[in-house]
Write a protein that binds this DNA or RNA. Structure first.
Lengths: 340, 340
DNA sequence: AATAGACTTGAATACGTATTCACCGCTGCT
DNA sequence: AGCAGCGGTGAATACGTATTCAAGTCTATT
């Protein structure tokens, strides 16, 4: 283990300048004469010097690191978002430290403390929520936290979501226009605003048109729960002619039960609509009609809001809702004369 | 921005002890008298003190951070692995800093340098490879790097893979035993050892049995390329009666083309075998026969090898191969009298 | 020609912690 | 009682960098 640590001191010695001069050369936005810069860079290259980020962070108070907390990656929407966030933040000079946390407040709070110990400049919570005791602490420390794809009753918290209520409404209107009479809903987890809002928008729109849901069951964002709910719908009494599922991930399980176990023709005998428009929704096996959550725009929004808060430009918290269109594919019967 | 940074100095002052004593209380494995410990902990709790990891790392030279570089998450196998790695490393006290890198040496090398600047204690390269100039530099710095799911001709590099050659062989033998006569292969990217080894094991086993591949096309680990290859197989001449696909992710696309576009009955008119056994392979829509890559054991192996190298216990690089069974499902015709 | 001023550079210091070393009091032995 | 030895604490220092401040050089202005 040779362990040849090259410091700015070493470079300074070789270049015949002082350590601060070396530091200045590697600090963007600081004036150094051309002659000095050349000497220093030459020496640095020769030694293979690169600034120690830890030492830099210690003194600047900026770690250029963002903590990302996520509960699970079963839902590919979060995978897609992670990938985009990573690239977007890197463009702005930030790196991501990632943590998996179980989705209960205790675990999340523990993880947030871990992140604070690492002096992260900001925190993104994806698919999890947190306690208000913690958000207060964060506010004191001046570390911004933003929720991704989750809302929060505490409006002092910034959050980026899609327009879930409007999305649920779109689905209801589309299915009603398609002439469906018994529309069931396998909702997203009711412990999450995302699940609640989609459900609420859907139910409200039905009511306004004088209809009411055939049935509503909490699918808990789980394939197994969604599959079980689907079976229960067809076990007794009148069966639904359409099912709105709280996200695509569950919708795939629903489709498999309908097609494989019950032998129903999707889009003809029964309609299915999802939410998210993950890449798989476009696969021929599923061909899922769904509400698009524009991951690109959501990520852009959360990154720019987070960076603005870090840099002190945005001091006010914001709740940002990104609207997404209904993507019509073959899994649900289209209304008469429907035009894309 | 109140920014109430509490330091060990503050705690020391309140507790009426020296700063080193505070440090000792928070450093595992250092002796402190019970009386001191109590005083310090009480003061620390009152102030809400938590040690600054950056400052600690600067002096110990241990950042307790692992850099993870990955090219893409299209293949869910890597998502699964990421999740498990995160949890496994956390159990050992390490955190993950994640980077996305394009899969060419230049980009990867750039990212590795970024990681070194952050003083990571170790680096995991998943689904990407690197230049030998870089590995030498890493060796000098004493930072271990391990490849995940990729081999490397340079045997001074540690790597964890599944037994790809043996896996390819298993598939060939299974398909031959099933009476298939025209076995085609859509390989994994031939620029990666994973793709090459599976292909080589497959081809070698065929040859030993006096058979030869119906056709071999590089699927580049891409759905589109795999779909195109499938179409080409059935466009002219004699069509294959079985296709071994280099990973599950591509196999799903192959199945969709065979079923949806060509109207073939999977498992009867044509057999498909994949590689990885990602969760989706068990979904009824695909029901894919495939070689399991045991993510759990692969992750356990890479984590323990990496930590051993970091702690200086394992100085020798190791190439670890984890064997995985063929998981027989419905996508390929089973040999006569096959027993699970 | 003299001086105000703009620019650069180096010396000193700070960031928050872990660790070395000297020192202290105490126990236990002869 | 005296001394070796041990466990525990504080003073000083180190980690590698960014930043403040004073001092220095050089240009431009009167």
């Amino acid at each position: 283990m040779p362990s040849v640590k090259v410091t700015s001191q070493d470079v300074a010695r070789l270049a015949g300048v002082s350590q601060p001069t070396v530091s200045r050369v590697f600090t963007p936005g600081v004036k150094v004469s051309k002659a000095m810069e050349d000497k220093v860079r030459r020496a640095a290259d020769e030694l293979g010097y690169r600034p120690n980020t830890l030492a830099r962070s210690l003194i600047t108070g900026q770690s250029m690191t963002i903590g990302l907390i996520v509960a699970y990656f079963d839902n590919p929407f979060y995978v897609e978002a992670l990938e985009k966030m990573s690239r977007a933040l890197k463009d702005k000079g930030y790196n991501i430290m990632i943590f998996m946390a179980a989705n209960h407040a205790g675990d999340v709070d523990q993880v947030v403390h871990d992140l604070l110990d690492h002096q992260v400049d900001g925190i993104i919570l994806a698919s999890v929520s947190t306690s208000s005791a913690l958000t207060e602490r964060l506010h004191e420390e001046g570390v911004p936290l933003i929720l991704f794809n989750r809302g929060h009753e505490d409006k002092s918290l910034s959050a980026v979501t899609s327009a879930n209520t409007a999305g649920g409404r779109k689905v209801a209107e589309f299915l009603l226009a398609g002439g469906h009479k018994r529309i069931a809903h396998i909702s997203g987890w009711q412990g999450a605003s995302t699940g609640r809002d989609r459900c609420a928008g859907f139910a409200k729109a039905l009511k306004e048109k004088g209809a009411e849901p055939h049935a509503i069951v909490d699918g808990l964002f789980s394939r197994e729960a969604a599959a079980a709910a689907t079976r229960s719908f067809f076990a007794t009494g009148e069966s639904p002619d359409a099912i709105f599922v709280g996200n695509d991930h569950m919708a795939f399980a629903v489709i498999e039960v309908l097609k494989g176990e019950l032998g129903l023709a999707i889009g003809q005998e029964v309609s299915v609509v999802g939410y998210d428009d993950v890449a798989m929704s476009a696969w021929p096996s599923f061909d899922l009609t769904t509400v698009r959550q524009p991951a690109n725009r959501m990520v852009d929004a959360i990154v720019s809001q987070l960076v603005a808060q870090i840099e002190g430009r945005a001091t006010e918290p914001r709740q940002i809702e990104i609207d997404g269109p209904l993507i019509v594919r073959g899994s649900a019967r289209k209304p008469e004369g429907w035009v894309a």
